[in-house]
Computed example of a mutant assay.
Amino acid sequence: MMQVLIIEDEPLAAEKLIKFLFTYDATIVICDTLASVETAVPWLKTNPLPDLILLDIHLADGLCFDIFKQVEVKCPVIFCTAYDQYALKAFQLHSIDYLLKPIQYAKLEQSLNKMKDMQYIKKPEVSNQQIEDIINLMKNQDSSYKSRFLVKLGTKIRTIKISEIAYFHSHDKLNLLVTKEGDRYPVDYSLDDLIQLLDPTLFFHINRKLIIHIDAVKEIHAYFKGRLKLILDPKLDEELIVSSQKTPLFKTWLDQ
């Protein structure tokens, strides 16, 4: 009976992983689902290690690699990432497995089979050197962030540079690119995929429905219980609140 810990800040992505795991093996036990470095570190320090961790690279309060700086993780880890095959070379070199987003069941099944096979040879673990290698290689891939998007409206097709974008917004089951001029275009990416493709120094994933460009923040107001209220330009026709959990990370992002 395999025990699995899921560390993923997107609830829908976590639910999808759980569904896939139960499809693979109905006896699998989900130890917990966590969404941040802040919650993962104390959990790993105070609970028995699971048989496997499914770990998203980008969490609510930073990169998952900060977990390994604070706690020793001596169990198999499968990383979930949207980085391309070149950046994933470090994972392959160190026999650490990964799932490329958007995650497909067949790929998860392949990874789980691989991890089970490796258990009979040598228990795969993650070392500090492996993590440093992965971070360094990923830093060298910063140029892979998208510089423009191809959009279509009716019969017209145009390219929009990153510098022209104010935010990405989910509305009525559509994901929209909104320009600084207020123009709106549907895009064929989920917000979860978009945040992996965008430069994190320029864009911030506020909530499940919104990713904003740093220049789109017009006003910031203190709100109840340590939260923040934002006014964007162009204006968003709904109240925009930064959660107390994300407020420290948001302030750090603004002050970089």
Rank of each mutant, 00 (worst) to 15 (best):
I78G: 00
A106I: 12
S147W: 08
D25T: 05
T155L: 13
F65N: 01
K161W: 11
V151L: 05
Q104S: 08
P234W: 00
L191E: 04
G154R: 10
V41G: 02
L177Y: 07
L198K: 02
D233L: 06
F20C: 08
L174Y: 15
Q104P: 06
I78M: 04
K161D: 13
E38V: 06
L88M: 14
S190Q: 11
S143G: 10
I195P: 07
L112C: 03
P102V: 08
Y120H: 13
V73N: 01
S143T: 12
I195N: 10
Q196E: 14
K156C: 05
L174V: 14
I121K: 13
D172H: 14
V4P: 05
T201N: 14
D233W: 04
V77K: 00
Q85K: 15
A222V: 11
K161F: 12
I214C: 06
Q141D: 10
Q92L: 11
S163H: 10
D9I: 03
A222R: 14
F20E: 08
F224P: 06
T33S: 09
L240E: 01
L17R: 04
K180G: 02
N113M: 10
D183A: 13
V178W: 05
M138G: 06
C31P: 05
L197V: 02
I157E: 12
A222W: 09
Y185F: 15
D199L: 03
T155S: 15
L232V: 03
C75M: 02
K209E: 14
K116Q: 11
A35N: 14
S190T: 15
V71R: 05
I121Y: 12
K101T: 11
I53R: 00
D193L: 13
K235F: 08
E72Y: 08
A35G: 13
L108F: 05
F68W: 00
D66V: 01
E164V: 03
A82M: 08
A222L: 12
L21A: 03
C80R: 11
E15S: 14
P50S: 02
A166N: 03
T252S: 11
D183G: 10
G62Y: 09
D193F: 13
K218E: 11
F79N: 00
I78H: 01
V242H: 01
M138P: 08
D9M: 06
G226V: 05
T179F: 04
Y105D: 02
T252W: 07
P248E: 02
V151R: 07
F149V: 02
D51P: 02
D188P: 09
I214V: 15
D84C: 12
V71H: 04
L93I: 13
D9A: 06
R208W: 08
L59H: 09
Y24C: 01
A87Q: 09
I160C: 03
V151Q: 06
L254D: 07
